[in-house]
Amino acid sequence: MTPVAPLALNLLLGVPGVVPIWLLWYLVSNWIDPAPTENDGMALWLVIIAPVLAFYALLWWFPNRALARRTPLTTRHYWLLSATGTLLPTAALLVYAP
């Protein structure tokens, strides 16, 4: 199995991963510098974000764990390639968004 399989898998998983990554960015940005109109508190956001992140983490972890055992890549290279592949769709949206 070539290193193309982990990259392709994580590119596909990175497309729905845009939502949890955006939610994390929104949570952190409002925690650091809250908007004046954001007066509901952070508890509501944690109720929304926790299930979404847990679902996506499981969706990402199980296929990657299974594929990591079958690739010729070292552990470090596999997980670096996986993280990069997952973040590429979000990076593409940031670069090419109007």
Rank of each mutant, 00 (worst) to 15 (best):
Y78G: 00
P20H: 10
V47N: 07
W25H: 15
V15D: 03
I21T: 15
L58W: 05
L44N: 08
V18T: 09
L44H: 06
W45Q: 04
V4H: 07
L87R: 07
G17H: 00
V52C: 08
W31L: 14
A35Q: 11
N30H: 14
P72K: 08
E38P: 02
L59T: 04
L12G: 03
S29F: 06
L58G: 07
Y56M: 09
L80K: 12
L67S: 04
V18D: 01
W45D: 02
W25A: 15
W60S: 00
P89A: 04
T37G: 12
T2V: 03
L67G: 02
T71I: 03
A97Y: 08
A83W: 05
G14D: 00
A92Y: 12
W79F: 08
L58D: 01
Y96A: 15
L94R: 06
R70A: 09
R70C: 05
L46C: 13
F55E: 02
F55D: 01
N39M: 15
A66W: 09
I48Y: 12
W22P: 01
P98H: 06
L24M: 09
P3A: 13
T2H: 06
L13D: 02
T2E: 08
D33K: 13
W25V: 15
G85W: 00
N30S: 12
G41N: 05
F62S: 06
V4M: 09
A43L: 15
N30M: 10
I32D: 05
T71Q: 12
G17N: 00
P6E: 01
N30D: 14
M1Y: 13
P34Y: 03
V4F: 10
L58H: 03
L7Y: 04
L93C: 15
V4I: 11
L53P: 00
L23A: 07
R69L: 14
W31N: 08
G14A: 04
M42A: 13
W79Y: 08
G17C: 06
W22H: 09
L27I: 11
G85A: 04
N64Y: 12
Y78P: 01
T74M: 02
L11G: 03
L9F: 10
A83V: 14
Y96S: 13
W60H: 00
P6I: 01
Y26E: 15
A35L: 12
I32T: 10
A66E: 08
L11K: 01
S82K: 01
W60D: 00
A50K: 02
T74D: 13
A5W: 11
V18W: 05
P63D: 10
R70T: 07
L93I: 14
Y78V: 04
N64L: 03
Y96I: 13
R70Y: 02
T84V: 10
R70H: 06
L80A: 15
L59W: 11
N39A: 15
L53R: 02
W25T: 11
W25E: 13
L93E: 08
A97K: 08
F62L: 12
H77E: 07
L87G: 14
N39K: 14
V18K: 02
G14M: 02
N64G: 10
M1N: 12
L93R: 12
L27K: 03
D40S: 11
S82T: 08
L58P: 00
R69C: 10
M42D: 10
D33F: 14
W79I: 01
M42F: 09
T2L: 03
I48G: 06
P20I: 01
V18C: 09
R70N: 07
